[in-house]
Amino acid sequence: MEGIAGRKPALIWAVHLSVVLLVVLWTLPTFGLLVSSFRDKDQLSVSGWWTSLTSTERNLVVRAPAPDDKGAQRQEGAFHVITGNVFDGGGAGAVSAFGVSSQDPSAFAVGETAVLKDGERVSVTETGDFRIEADQPMTGKRGQRLFVTVLEPPLFTLDNYRTVLLSEGIGRSFINTLTVTIPATIIPILIAAFAGYALAWMRFPGRTFLVAMVVGLIVVPLQMSLIPLLRLYTDIGIGKSYVGIWLAHTGFGLPLAIYLLRNYIKGLPKEIIESARVDGASDFEIFVKIVLPLSFPALASFAIFQFLWVWNDLLVATVFLGNNEEQLVMTGRLRELLGSRGGNWEILTASAFVSIAVPLAVFFALQRYLVRGLLAGSVK
């Protein structure tokens, strides 16, 4: 019942539950990605992250030593025997079943004996020891194939991160990404701040038309302008250069930046602006000394979004910088680590958390200044 002390309306509870649900929906995949980044490569390829704390079932194909190999076959009493272990090539776990044919790879339980067509007998223990015996000397240049079902314990490793962090050229790509991201974040903020103030508080012909054009440019897909813009840059001599990609990111980010900052600056108390003009302050002085400090929350918010966009960008960097080893950004370097078919999932998961380390640091740093800006912008 609404209005009774100590009780909350049902709508408030619905809002709270919706927020909790959204947080879980956003956090759960990220948590799964984090867990996967520490899992063993082989286990990651056959099971989901939610099974990371339980044993994983995996099928192995092992070839026993060939009978004709020197020392592979020995005689024990009346039998000729070949022995070994299915984990000699690496790995660990407990064998739950085995087979001698790909059509039925788990036909026999551990401890049972499989009889081959030529009379040879095969058995496998839970620890992976196998034994092949026959009444007559065995011949052949190829050993018997064994299909083994193994229950592996959970395996966690740092090899995925070592592969990413120690890969050749990753340091250079990190510097290249910073070289692209920092100017591509600062330049549009500076231009948009001046433009936002002009469109909000300065009167001049065509201001309404400019605002409408800025709003219209927000919905224009950047993919439509990539090739024409690259051709223009090539004609004027800045194609495949840092200057070109700085200007490209500036152009792509300006419409949204101007729109956000203009609306924020427009909402500042009118009395402050008018008082400054009465005191003889110019528009530049009003912008630098009053508007800019009060607009810090909006500036910090856009800086976060622009930094994240440029840092995680691959398409624009590929078009305007290419795949030159000296200018390859981190997203391009991590793409190469995935392989030609993109099947190295363990690299993908570790790369995701390596690439978000800097954006997270920027977000938390600007969040502190964002709160300070909100307090500084209050009016008594």
Rank of each mutant, 00 (worst) to 15 (best):
residue 369 Y to W: 05
residue 56 T to M: 08
residue 41 K to G: 03
residue 307 F to Q: 06
residue 266 K to E: 00
residue 194 F to G: 14
residue 182 I to K: 01
residue 362 V to W: 02
residue 201 W to C: 09
residue 299 L to E: 00
residue 120 E to H: 13
residue 247 L to C: 05
residue 209 F to Q: 15
residue 85 N to E: 01
residue 94 A to R: 15
residue 109 A to S: 14
residue 66 A to C: 07
residue 33 L to N: 06
residue 23 V to C: 14
residue 150 V to N: 03
residue 36 S to V: 01
residue 63 R to P: 04
residue 286 I to Q: 07
residue 33 L to M: 14
residue 68 D to P: 05
residue 106 S to T: 10
residue 344 N to E: 13
residue 148 V to A: 04
residue 245 I to C: 09
residue 295 S to C: 03
residue 241 S to L: 07
residue 257 A to Y: 08
residue 373 G to I: 09
residue 308 L to R: 05
residue 134 A to H: 12
residue 295 S to R: 03
residue 214 V to D: 03
residue 380 K to A: 15
residue 259 Y to I: 01
residue 41 K to A: 15
residue 8 K to S: 08
residue 91 G to V: 00
residue 12 I to T: 07
residue 144 Q to V: 00
residue 204 F to A: 11
residue 93 G to I: 07
residue 110 V to R: 15
residue 199 L to R: 11
residue 222 L to I: 11
residue 183 P to A: 05
residue 168 E to D: 07
residue 125 T to Y: 04
residue 6 G to R: 08
residue 169 G to E: 02
residue 40 D to N: 12
residue 339 G to L: 13
residue 20 V to L: 09
residue 256 L to S: 11
residue 207 R to P: 06
residue 22 L to Y: 00
residue 49 W to F: 14
residue 44 L to H: 07
residue 263 N to A: 13
residue 359 P to K: 15
residue 57 E to V: 14
residue 317 A to L: 05
residue 356 I to N: 12
residue 380 K to D: 07
residue 65 P to H: 05
residue 29 P to M: 11
residue 174 F to M: 01
residue 235 D to N: 14
residue 222 L to Y: 12
residue 142 R to Y: 04
residue 172 R to K: 07
residue 57 E to F: 02
residue 226 L to V: 12
residue 240 K to M: 09
residue 307 F to G: 03
residue 279 D to P: 12
residue 214 V to L: 06
residue 353 F to R: 15
residue 361 A to L: 13
residue 254 L to G: 10
residue 135 D to A: 10
residue 299 L to C: 01
residue 295 S to W: 01
residue 103 Q to P: 06
residue 125 T to C: 03
residue 44 L to P: 04
residue 87 F to N: 03
residue 270 K to I: 00
residue 377 G to N: 10
residue 9 P to S: 15
residue 338 L to D: 02
residue 193 A to P: 08
residue 57 E to W: 00
residue 59 N to H: 00
residue 166 L to A: 11
residue 304 I to H: 09
residue 184 A to L: 01
residue 362 V to P: 13
residue 98 F to V: 06
residue 33 L to S: 12
residue 232 L to S: 09
residue 26 W to S: 13
residue 218 I to R: 13
residue 335 R to S: 10
residue 160 N to S: 11
residue 200 A to R: 04
residue 360 L to F: 11
residue 52 S to K: 15
residue 144 Q to S: 01
residue 48 G to V: 00
residue 238 I to V: 13
residue 100 V to Q: 10
residue 334 L to R: 05
residue 107 A to G: 11
residue 189 I to S: 11
residue 155 L to W: 01
residue 64 A to W: 02
residue 249 H to E: 13
residue 141 K to F: 07
residue 328 L to G: 09
residue 220 V to S: 06
residue 291 V to G: 07
residue 92 A to I: 06
residue 112 E to V: 07
residue 35 V to A: 13
residue 285 E to L: 14
residue 253 G to H: 05
residue 58 R to S: 12
residue 49 W to E: 14
residue 130 F to C: 00
residue 100 V to R: 10
residue 223 Q to D: 05
residue 148 V to E: 00
residue 17 L to A: 03
residue 274 E to P: 09
